[in-house]
Design a protein around this nucleic acid. Structure first.
Length: 495
DNA sequence: ATACATACC
DNA sequence: TACTGGTATGTAT
């Protein structure tokens, strides 16, 4: 990617900038500020539950988990650098006095149930993310109450503390992405309210470390750092470069970060794409042992399928982690849906067999290519539910990576007007709202339009059908483009 | 369609 | 002793 970057960093990207600005404007205008979303996060949940049972644990550094992995640590332990997701033995090196408590899931589930009962009072369709974390849509409740969002959330947190003697932190904002970030701001036992207003949100994101955004991990952070993007606000300055370097999905996610856009939709189950189970164990290599594992996992997966009301999947996959820690993933797709545990086991065994001989410490099996979710809604409701609207996008960011090249050059390369002319025209347009002759980069037509009209024209031009048609036409009319992949990203935006 | 990588908790 | 474990999904080939 660095090479790609070097190649384009000195190029004239004013057209890309224009295109991206158009997109930004569109997204900004479509912003939904009508919802009040709250993210509640219990403080050091498992550790706090353990402290309830044994208050003496509060006085010492303590963590919950095992030698292989810790799930949570109390705040005393965090002072030593003991974190969740850290192997216990390593934590002991940092903090030899650390007391490690084994997991007691039934207790955590019981505590979680109490908390969830409270959530349900304020939002019956609250969205639990794990035992200790949930999103609430407070819009409805607030509309029937005199309380401000902050007062309401304070009340909810008070209630949690009364009922469970556990503390929670919360974030209140216009969407899930922002609420999640806010819940981290005054942790532990605090809350942060980000008003559901455009200006407040833009100010908030402008200085917000990109790493705070859920979905941006260590790797992505580093990649972005290379491009001088540290905060969500930085994305604006680098928008043209990002547009050229990132995949359409990643780029759109970047724009959402910049604008502080996120989902307000709580229906996660609707677009699940796969279901899987995996287990780690002490090294196995005898085929019989492996096949026994397959049967165990197939059983678990079949149960999970039933519990989630999933009919089956056409693709069956395995994951093997060798004792060398290498990971192998294999899969096979069938014309019909696989769901019975016997069928799963049989296919998985075939896949495993091809990998023999192996010595593994983990086996996972997966079903994907799931059937489209059956909509059991009757009546008019479904017409509202089904709309996979433009923005409905969950927080689905993940992989940042390069896209081979930009679609723009292939589009402009066919236009009668050279790039330089085009950008000059647009630039002229910028400062003088008068009518200027431009060549539309999409349809190549010469147009006499003012800035507003030009944008409107872009709108019309930039829809799936038009773009597809044009790309097709270009492929016919033109000697093969230097780069076959070029049409891709632009199409993907409007798919 | 398949393999691999990153992220979250 | 020991670098987690379970699930989802984006991206490259």
């Amino acid at each position: 990617m660095i090479r790609q970057y070097d190649k384009i960093k000195d190029m004239d990207l004013s057209f890309e900038t224009k295109l991206v600005d158009h997109k930004i404007n569109e997204m900004d205008t479509g912003r939904d500020l009508t919802q009040c979303i709250c993210h509640v996060d219990m403080d050091a949940f498992y550790a706090s539950v353990e402290e309830l049972d044994d208050p003496s644990l509060k006085e010492i550094p303590m963590a919950v988990g095992g030698m292989h992995m810790l799930c949570t640590s109390n705040y005393k332990a965090r002072q030593f650098g003991v974190r969740s997701a850290m192997p216990g033995y390593l934590a002991l090196k940092l903090c030899p006095q650390l007391k490690i408590i084994p997991l007691h899931f039934p207790k955590y589930r019981a505590a979680s149930a109490k908390v969830r009962a409270i959530f349900a009072k304020y939002d019956p369709s609250f969205l639990p993310m794990s035992l200790d974390e949930a999103y609430l849509n407070l819009t409805n409740y607030l509309s029937t109450s005199e309380l401000t969002p902050e007062q309401l959330v304070q009340q909810i947190r008070d209630e949690i503390q009364q009922e469970t003697q556990l503390t929670a932190s919360a974030g209140i904002a216009a969407n899930r992405m922002l609420a999640k970030i806010c819940s981290d701001f005054n942790k532990p036992n605090g809350q942060y309210f980000l008003p559901m207003e455009r200006e407040a949100i833009m100010k908030f994101t402008s200085n917000l470390s990109i790493r705070k955004v859920s979905g941006v991990g260590r790797v992505t952070e580093r990649v972005l750092q290379t491009l001088d993007v540290k905060t969500c606000g930085d994305i604006l300055h680098r928008r043209a470069i990002l547009y050229r370097l990132l995949s359409p999905i990643s780029f759109q996610f970047m724009l959402k970060c910049y604008l502080g856009l996120g989902s307000t939709n709580f229906n996660l189950e609707s677009d699940r794409k796969s279901i899987s189970v995996e287990r780690t164990f002490s090294a196995l290599s005898k085929p019989d042992d492996l096949y026994r594992k397959v049967d165990e996992l197939a059983e678990l997966l079949a149960v999970d399928l039933g519990r989630n009301q999933i009919q089956g999947g056409k693709t069956v996959g395995i994951k093997l982690k060798l004792t060398s820690f290498d990971v192998r993933v294999r899969s096979k797709t069938y014309p019909s849906y696989i769901s019975k545990k016997e069928d799963i086991a049989r296919i998985v065994k075939e896949l495993v067999q091809k990998e023999l001989p192996v010595s593994i410490r983990l086996m996972g099996i997966r079903l994907s290519s799931l059937p489209p979710k059956v909509d059991d809604d009757h009546g008019v409701k479904k017409y509202f539910k089904k709309r996979k609207n433009t923005d409905a996008g969950e927080e689905q960011p993940r992989k940042i990576s390069t896209v081979p090249s930009s679609p723009v050059s292939v589009l402009t390369s066919t236009s009668v007007t050279p790039d330089t002319h085009l950008t000059a025209s647009i630039a002229a347009n910028e400062n003088a709202p008068s009518i200027v002759a431009v060549t539309c980069p999409i349809c190549s037509r010469s147009l006499a339009l003012d800035n507003h009209q030009f944008n409107q024209h872009l709108d019309e031009c930039l829809n799936k059908v038009t773009v597809k048609a044009i790309l097709q036409q270009q492929q016919q009319n033109q000697s093969p483009p230097q780069d076959q992949t070029q049409g891709r990203s632009l199409l993907d935006y409007y798919r």
